[in-house]
Structure formats: C-alpha cells, structure tokens
Nucleic acid binder design. Structure first.
Length: 828
RNA sequence: GCGAGAGUGGCGGAACGGCAGACGCGCAAGGCUCAGGACCUUGUGAGGGAAACUUCGUGGGGGUUCAAGUCCCCCCUCUCGCACCA
C-alpha cells in the first residue's frame, strides 16, 4: 500500500516562452512522461481526506482495442477522478481486465493463438490507449482475472458460497449455444438466442450443472434497490427480472390415481371455483403417469413436437395456443368438479411448478385456450362497481367473487386470503411467493475460465478443494478447442483430472467445467482496495477504508447480469461477515452509447470504427477528451462526429491564445473590474455545479462562454484570479494542457494536485438585472434595473415603458404578476 | 402485447413553470493570407417588412395556468428492456 503525500513532484521541465501556436503533439507526450516519472497517479492514503472510489465496469480487453465510443465511459470517469482529487478527496481510480471467458477464448481460437498470449498483449494495448488518452489510473493496482493470483480468490469465493449452501450441483435441461459450445445462464439468453450470438437460437441439453442460489437472495435484491442511487430504468429492469409474485401453491388430486396430485402456483387463488381445467407443461413428470391409453399417441406426439420447437417459436406470444387432452381428470377441491387435465406449451416447466389451474373467466390465456378447445368458461369474478363481467373476454381485473361458494361477495384481496386460509387448514396448499428469476447457472464447458475447485471422489462424493490447496491451476493446453459434446476440454488433460480426494486420499477426479466469467467480475471491485494482498481476497483494513464504490459507471446492457450477480455476491460476503456494506455500488450511472457517424454500431466488420489513436494523432488527446465530454449529456446516446473534435481543438487553441497573451504581458496581477470578477466567480459556481452533476457538456459550454468573455479583455483587465481559476477548472478535462499552463504560469507542482477553485457568493451577485416585461404573457420589453429594487419600482417601470404604453392605450390592467428581479406580467 | 425512456434550427445539443434555440458544428459575408478543413470579425429558426418591427414556431391534438419545450389527458414516431412467468 502506497502512502505517499500530496507533495507536488518537481518537474524536470523548464519554463520557456509559450509557442505562438498550441501544439498538442509536443505538449502531451512530455506531460505523460512526467506523470509516469513522478508516479503522479499513485493512490495516496491521507487520513485527513475523505475517500472517493470511482470505478468503470471491468472491461474485457478486446483485440480490436478501444474506440472513441469506449472512451465515452473512461474519459468522464477520469474527469470525475481528477475533479474529486482537486476537490479534496483521496481518489481511488483503478483499472483491470476481465480476461477470463469466452470472448478471449473465441478470439484466440479464431487466430490460432493461445489466450495466455493474446490476453496480456491486448491488455497492454488497452493500457497504452488509456494512457494516450490522458486517463489517470493507479497502474500499480492493475489486476487481471485470468491470473492465478486473482482467480485463486474467485475459487475461494466459490468455496465460500459452497460452504454456505449457495453453490449446488443439479441435473436439468439447460440452454446450450452451439456457437459458444457451452451452457448459458438464463440471463444470457436473449429473445431465445445467445447473448453473444443474436443469430443463434439456443437449444436444450440435459446436463449436470453447477448453480449459485441467487433465488435465495431474491427478496433482498429487490428490497435493497430502494436504498441505492441508480438510474430508475435499471432498478426497474432488475425488479422485473427477479419478477416476484405473491400467490398460493395449491394441489388437486388426480382422479383415479391415488396419491398423485397436480401441484400448481397461482396469483389468483380467489378464482379457484372457476377452475374448469388444468394444464401441465409438456415436460411435466406427471404427464406419462396419468395419460390414458386412448390419448397416449396424441400426447406423445405433442410432447415430441414441443421438444423439436425452437424456443423462439415456443415463446412467441402471437402464436395460437395449442394443447392436447391427457384423458385424465383432477378433482377441483373447491367446486367439487372433476376437471380435465391438458398439456400445452404455453405452460412453462421452468416457472412455478410447471402446472397451472386454468381460470378462463379471469385469465386471457386460459380464455383463449378454452375457446379454442370448447372448454367450460365459468365466471367467478365480477367488476367491483356491480356491472356485469364481460362475456367475450376474460375479466382479469380485481373485483368481487361470484359463483364461488364461501367466497361470494368477497373483494378479490379478501377472497385470496380466505382461500389461503382454507387451503392451509385443509392441507391443500399455502400462500407462497414465486420468482421469475432462476438460479444462476455457472458451469461452462470451456477451457479459458476459472476452474471450479471441486473434486469427485467415489467414496466421499462431491468434495470441495481445501482453501490451502488453492489455486486449482488452469493447466496449459495446446488444443483447447471445445468438443461440442458438453464436456469441457479439460476432461482430456489426465494430469489435471486425476487427483486425490482431499478427504480420504483415494483416487478422485476434478471437476472439469470452468466458472462463468461473470463470477470473476462479481468481486473484482474489492480486489482493487488491496490488489497484492496475499492472505485473503482483500485486506480488511483497506476494504474498510475504500469500499464500497462511490461512483460506478458502465453500460446499461449489464442491468440484469453483472449488476445482479455482483449485488448477490456482496450480500453473501456481508452475511459471512467479510464486509460491512450490503450494496457494492451505492451510486451507478450509465454512459450513453456512441454510435458511429452512420448511426450504426461501431464495428470492425462495418469499417466505421474510429480509434482514439487516430484522433490523438490528428487533434491531440485533450481535444478528443473535450469532445467526448461536450458532444452531449453523458448519459445519452449520440452519433460520433469527428468535426466536433476539430471544434474542441479550436477552442483549446483559443484558450492557448488568451493564456499566452496574459503570460507574455508578464502575468499582471490585475485590478479587474467588478464585472470581470463577478464573471470569474459565477463561472466557478456554474462549472462546479455541473461537475458535481456530471453535466460535462454544459460545464464545458460555460467554460467556452467565459473564454469568449476573457478574450475580449486586455491582460491587465483580466487579472490573475480569472486566468488561474479558469486553468484549474480546465485541468481535469484537458489534463495535459492544464499542466502546461500551470507550469507556464510559474508553478512548479502538478496542477492535478492543486485545489479546485472556490467562489465567493457575495461576488457572484449581480448589480443590475434584466426584468422581462410581458403583456398577457407575451414579452414586450426588457428593462435593465438595479438588482433588488422591489416590486413597486419594477412594476411602475414596466407600466411606463414605451412598448407597454403603446399596447395599454385605452385599456386598463386587471392583474400584475411579479417575479422578483425577473419578470413583470401585465394581464389586460 | 406489456414496461421504460426520448421527440427542440441543416447537425450535436441548452433552457429552477418565466427572454426558446445557451455553447459548439456547419453555412454565409468580410478581413488576413502565396496557400490552407488555418486564424480573426460579423451574421445565421421560419414567414412578412426598406426599416423600426411583427406574426408563427419545441412530433400531433386537447387541457391546466397570468405564463407550458417544461405540468395533465389522448394520439403518432423512434430507441431500449421483457416477451404466454400462471
């Protein structure tokens, strides 16, 4: 842990006259060199200062390098880090690489290389580009999730989850992507396709898999959203993804099959009296047991056909509902009727119990199904206002129970509790909560990932690798191509697979699947607190100091994957007493997407990628940074437009001219006019406010505005305060040029260790104000009046001005609206 | 289908319910240049007018208000998320 001081380094750069023209290509490399030489960006732990931890989402270092689109995340975060440091914080701004996982492996396979060679090379290129862009990271804290120093702790966390009963192995039907040649988690299936391959429909595969029990945290993941400062759409996506719904789980006996029952979940137990049939998912285990001989052929064919269907077809909501009668009946224990049991693919095996009670009078899907197959449609809920329930569609709203025995007359909410109470008393069921979210499937049948630290022993079964034997090293493999059979390539490495049981010492085999890459990124933010700590994933002292992350920034595409997983792990760590906070990222912001100039996604194949390298070469890093900040609101998407970089380069040129003129004039201390002083203080006030709110585009607009003002003054009229405060505020955005100016102004230390300028509210006060004069809400005149002269004087002035007099001749006003020092509206 | 967000000049975008279009790009005119995607100055929403001025104008339609880009209702378009979750 470095504990340097905030003492400024001594530059090895002499003060020389400023060139006439601003030339970023001479300025920028020399300051980058100075920063490295003096370790300017080492994290400094100063107990006298509050800490600020700003973090970008863990990037995968792609072989394509960074584009100007990626910088729209990194540059603003860098500005925040630099601003916060100047504003008095100890700033932690680290960077590392999400290097394990499919993208790295696929890329290496494609190029016939090994990820252990490509990953460091690509990461070095990212690092070079980030440095080139003037981003200030403490590179002594660089981490890499594919390094054994790192993944031994990923494995350690796996064991922690396992010990706490949150990692388990289970068989099941899983999503398989043929292109990835591995199993995917539910979150990684989008529109029935692989999240990495939108053109590849996922299929089902039966395999034993490892899961993390994220569903055990479902309620807390929802509840704790209330206390964190995240964009509302992201919170909403998480709530919807978790999909909590309250209802009841009930069971009806299958007629003629003693001991067999259909268990089902419903959110509307109040409609049980209207249940006229039941539907099982085609994969439901009960199907074979209860299907009658007469129906067997039809049922088997339907099940086979459902299996063949792609998920896309199956999940299509526009598709007409289909199903087949099993021949069996269940006894509706409420209405006392025997009701037919059907199978249909609109019932999903993966949700609830894979079976439903159909209340066609109150559910659109059941209604459509009943209509199609001529099933009975009882009506058991009426609108609360006493009107009749519609006959041509399901009445899905809440209302009052009718035709429902002991529920008649009860409001829906009361009827729900009554059914639950009755069901519990009679052993039919109980109130329960169901979630859309499933457990997180974490095993991957691929090579380039964190090995799961588990051993299979013929006598002891599933045995976790003891902590002191970590890391389970990923073996070196030349031919690591996935087989596509559902077995990891690691299964072919005998030296890896064959091991001894940690319990009995007998021969045993290692787990050969690797962990989902999202496991690696579920705890990396902790590692940055003490990246070289060898005794634990993080030094508890450093963790207490730096965590949680004060500002987390990344794309909205991670709303239900990374952000949900990292939150779950954090809660597990909290429960285990490792950390004192429940949420890893108390404040989250999403940067807007930067599309290419043609409005499409920047991609190599489309040939529309713009690199920072090219922009720095042409305009300089500071100009590029400024355009990243100025092109629009940080959180909104926009198209790339290179002309903008030219514009911000021109702005820097103009700043150069103004500062240079001031320095050439011998830096006159100045006795600025009140107006000039006021403008300087107002600029500080506005820019500070915009920086705090991450409104970089308007912060820069304010700076440009102020420059236009300063450019009209002589150096003597400007004064040192206006120039230096301006340069200080420019420094986080244009760090190279800021440093150059600071040196040229005669300072020896780094501008980035200086304090952010402060303003005097007294000096921002205007002496005169413009009062808008309106007649009937239309602007008719503007008056320059002394500030704070009061309502009487202002309304009198407004009534006496020419424009008003002209309009008012022969009329009288009914009312005057007065907004102090702003507006007089005369209502005629 | 459900949910969320967004529609403002030629373009990117500014506007605590109170001067719509800040700031910038582009464009135009002028200056300066051997030259320039350089630099400087001025102008630049639309219509009308010689001008002072004036009318219209924030996707469309209603409404609330002294006053609406901003608040409310309906509609249209685009982007994103979820897509039979019982």
């Amino acid at each position: 842990m470095h504990s340097g001081t905030l003492n400024s380094p001594i530059w090895s750069i002499a003060i020389t006259p400023m060139d006439e023209r601003y030339d970023p290509h001479t300025i920028e490399p020399r300051w980058r060199e100075q920063w490295e030489r003096t370790d300017l960006y080492l994290t400094r732990e100063d107990p006298g200062r509050p800490k600020f931890y700003v973090l970008e989402m863990f990037p995968y270092p792609s072989g394509n390098g960074l584009s100007v689109g990626h910088l729209h995340n990194y540059v603003p975060c860098d500005v925040v880090g630099r601003y916060k440091r100047m504003a008095g914080f100890n700033v932690l701004h680290p960077m590392g690489w999400d290097a394990f996982g499919l993208p790295a492996e696929n890329d290496a396979l494609l190029k016939g290389l090994h990820p252990k060679e490509t990953v460091p090379r690509y990461a070095a290129n990212f690092k070079r580009q980030l440095k080139l862009s003037g981003c200030a990271y403490d590179w002594t804290r660089e981490i890499n999730s594919s390094s054994p120093d790192y993944y031994r702790w990923t494995q350690w966390f796996f064991l922690l989850l396992h010990r706490r009963g949150l990692a388990y192995r289970a068989p099941g039907s899983q999503w398989w992507c043929e292109k990835c040649r591995t199993i995917l988690a539910n979150e990684q299936v989008i529109n029935g396709c692989c999240w990495r391959h939108p053109d590849t429909v996922v299929t089902r595969k039966e395999l034993d898999q490892w899961y993390f029990k994220i569903t055990a945290y479902a309620d807390r993941l929802i509840e704790d959203l209330d206390g964190i400062d995240w964009p509302e759409p992201i919170k909403l996506m998480q709530r919807n993804w978790i999909g909590r719904s309250e209802g009841a789980e009930l069971a009806f006996p299958v007629s003629g099959h003693a001991g067999q029952e259909v268990r089902f979940f419903t959110t509307r137990p109040d409609t049980v009296f209207g249940v006229s049939f039941m539907v099982l998912a085609p994969e439901h285990p009960l199907v074979t047991a209860i299907t009658t001989g007469a129906q067997r052929a039809a049922v088997e064919e339907y099940v086979a056909q459902a299996r063949r269907q792609s998920e896309i077809e199956r999940l299509s909501t526009v598709k007409e509902k289909t199903g087949v009668f099993t021949g069996a009946h269940a006894r509706n224990l409420f209405s006392g009727k025997d009701i037919p049991i059907w199978i249909a693919d609109y019932v999903l095996m993966g949700y609830g119990t894979g079976a439903i009670m159909a209340a066609p009078g109150e559910d659109e899907r059941d209604f459509a199904f009943a209509k199609k197959y001529g099933l009975e449609i009882p009506i058991v809920t009426a609108p609360a206002d006493g009107s009749a329930a519609p006959a041509d569609r399901a009445f899905t709203e809440r209302g009052v129970a009718i035709n429902s025995g002991f529920l008649d007359g009860l409001k829906t909410s009361d009827a729900i509790s009554a059914v639950c109470k009755y069901a519990e008393a009679h052993g039919i069921g109980r109130p329960t909560v169901s979630y859309r979210m499933r457990d997180w499937l974490i095993s991957r049948q691929r090579y380039w990932g964190c090995p799961i630290p588990i051993v299979y022993c013929p006598t002891d079964g599933i045995v976790p690798v003891p902590e002191d034997q970590l890391p389970v090293l990923l073996p070196d493999m030349k031919d690591y191509e996935p087989s596509g059979t559902g077995r990891s390539p690691l299964a072919n490495v005998a030296e890896f697979v064959n091991t001894v049981c940690p319990k009995c010492g007998g021969p045993a085999e290692r787990e050969t699947d690797t962990l989902d890459g999202f496991a690696c990124s579920s705890w990396y933010f902790l590692r940055f607190a003490s990246p070289h700590y060898a005794a634990a994933p993080f030094d508890p002292r450093a963790g207490d100091y730096w965590l949680p992350v004060d500002l987390y920034v990344g794309g909205a595409e991670h709303a239900v994957m990374h952000l949900l997983y990292a939150r779950m792990w954090t809660k597990v760590m909290f429960d285990a007493g490792l950390i004192k906070f429940k949420e890893p990222f108390p404040a989250l912001r999403n940067q807007g997407m930067i599309w290419a100039a043609d409005g499409q996604k920047m991609s190599k194949s489309k040939g529309n990628v713009v690199t920072p390298d090219a922009m720095v070469e042409k305009y300089g890093a500071d100009a590029l940074r400024l355009w990243e900040l100025f092109m629009g609101p940080f959180e909104e998407a926009t198209n790339w437009n290179e002309d903008g970089v030219f514009g911000t380069a021109r702005y820097l040129q103009r700043v150069w001219a103004v500062v240079r003129r001031y320095i050439e004039a011998g830096c006159p201390p100045g006795d600025p006019a009140a107006e000039t002083l006021r403008r300087a203080h107002k600029t500080i006030r506005t820019v500070t406010d915009h920086m705090e709110r991450m409104r970089f585009n308007t912060a820069l607009a304010t700076m440009m505005d102020q420059l236009n003002y300063l450019a009209k003054l002589t150096p003597g009229e400007t004064g040192r305060f206006a120039i230096e405060s301006y340069v200080l505020m420019l420094a986080p955005m244009a760090p190279h040029l800021g440093e150059e100016f600071w040196r040229a102004l005669g300072h020896d230390g780094s501008i980035h260790l200086e304090s952010w300028p402060t303003f005097d509210p007294e000096l921002t006060r205007d002496e005169t104000v413009t009062v808008i004069v309106q007649v009937n809400g239309k602007v008719r005149d503007r008056l320059q009046v002394p500030a704070g002269q009061g309502e009487a004087a202002n309304t009198a002035a407004a009534l006496n001005c020419g424009a008003v007099m002209k309009l008012m001749t022969g009329k009288s006003y009914t009312k005057i609206i007065y907004v102090p020092d702003k507006l007089v509206n005369i209502v005629v």
